[in-house]
Amino acid sequence: MQSQLPLYPESASNFSSQVDGLMLFMVAVCLFFGALICVAVVYFFFRYRRKTADEIGAPIHGDLRLEITWIVLPFFLLMAMFGWGAVIYVDYRHAPPDTLDVYVIGKQWMWKLQQPNGRREINELHVPVDRNVRLILASEDVIHDFSVPAFRVKMDVMPGHYNSMWFKPTKTGRYHFFCSQYCGTSHAIMGGWVTVMEQDEYAAWLAGSTNSGDPVAEGAKLYNDLACNTCHLPDGKGRGPSYNGVYGSKVKLADGSAVLADDAYIRESILQPNAKIVAGFQPVMPSFQGLVTEDQIIALTAYIKAQKDQPVPGKPAAGEPATGKK
């Protein structure tokens, strides 16, 4: 268990070791310069104390070489800090391709999390050790922030669009996560625990889920309830493109460009259908803005994702990226 006076959090992700290395470097540099100044001040303070009441100091006005030294030298150290930090940050902002995606929805004042298979949790997150995990974050109201000190990561959860963060847990255990962006009355209790499990345990845990429906099934139901099925026929002969094989592919658009059909694209297509029109189709789809919740968008996305390997209309076999919109 935690000691009474912890000084630094546990190190439990790929980023913790990187961040801690940089932290150590910066602490060392800063301690050196801080100590240099403190020692100089204290030494001068006693060494040059006033001896007689009318004494004056030596009239030294400055020294150009010294000034240049203490401008240039720190500059290089600062650039080292900047560069090192930037490398970690760029890594952090760009998740590797093979991530386990967990959706995280923040709302005043709780976290709703959903595993890839649809298992839902409130204020608890289970992840397998040594796997790249990506959290896809959205907020239903104000700005929140998902922060896991033991992993040394955090990211704001914005209303209106997705943010994402990723990490690779390196150590099993239970770690606090917090809401770090002030979000109103119960901001302080808007936290929970990340449980890092062995991969097989995680698989077993995931399989043992009973508390919620399969998002693919839920998405399929929504697909009918929201009457998506009247236009988006699987054979691609409806007024809208087929879902089959869309997810993860490059979609050709009417304006000639192409876009990667990822979560953000699908979300956009549901809320702002005509922002990107698939080549060969008319902009006739109504917006579902205000008609679907973030949860439902996730379910629909899961459903579309599940059709990834279905045969693509107009193509002999799956595998090749195809045109078509959900």
Partner: peptide
């Protein structure tokens, strides 16, 4: 002032650092 400002300024470097800010931001 010199002592405290030095500490304040040096710790500012931690927060200006992209890699450390993802850990230290809003703490």
């Amino acid at each position: 002032f010199i002592g405290l400002f030095t500490i304040g300024g040096l710790t500012g470097l931690f927060l200006a650092c992209l890699g450390l800010d993802i850990h230290l931001h809003d703490t």
